[in-house]
């Protein structure tokens, strides 16, 4: 157990090794470890966020699906309503058209009747005149007695 210069030499080499470790070993390793720690923390956080996002997306999908269903139901309902409306309208129109046609036919018939009456009247007058002419022979002045006969015809 001799105490000698070894003591000093060991002290110096100790100092050098500590300095070397402080300068070249410790900082890069610790930095890398801290960086990795950060990366892992970030990764975990991202995973958490992603799963939260997934939940959100799922909820959104469900909501949108519900919305779409509602809209579809609404559209179908509207279509149904519109369909029955159209049928209703068509019925009404058909009825109106029928009515109109009936009216038109009626007035046509009336017109036709009137026209026939008119024709008949004029022919009656002519016939009456011809008959009267035959009866009276030339004693009647056509131009003088035409008015009387026409009056007679119109009263038929």
């Amino acid at each position: 157990m001799n105490i000698n210069l070894t003591l000093i030499a060991q002290l110096i080499s100790f100092a050098i090794f500590v300095w070397f470790c402080r300068k070249y070993i410790w900082p890069p390793i610790v930095n890398a470890m801290a960086e990795r720690e950060q990366q892992i923390a970030n990764g975990l956080q991202a995973a958490e966020r992603a799963s939260a996002d997934l939940e959100d997306a799922k909820a959104q999908i469900a909501a949108e699906l519900e919305d779409a269903k509602q809209q579809a139901a609404q559209i179908i309902e509207q279509a149904n309503k519109r369909g029955s409306q159209i049928v209703e309208d068509a019925k009404e129109q058909a009825v109106a058209e029928g009515q109109r046609l009936k009216e038109a036919a009626k007035s046509d018939i009336e017109q036709e009747v009137n026209r026939a009456k008119e024709q008949l009247r004029s022919q009656v007058a002519t016939l009456a005149l011809a008959g009267a002419e035959k009866v009276l022979q030339a004693s009647i002045d056509e131009s003088a007695h035409r008015g009387i006969v026409d009056k007679l015809a119109s009263s038929l």
Partner: peptide, 17 residues
């Protein structure tokens, strides 16, 4: 001591996160 410095410094040099 040199073995310590050398081996650890080698790791420190190529250290990756």
């Amino acid at each position: 001591g040199v073995l310590f410095c050398w081996s650890f410094a080698r790791v420190a040099k190529n250290v990756t996160a």
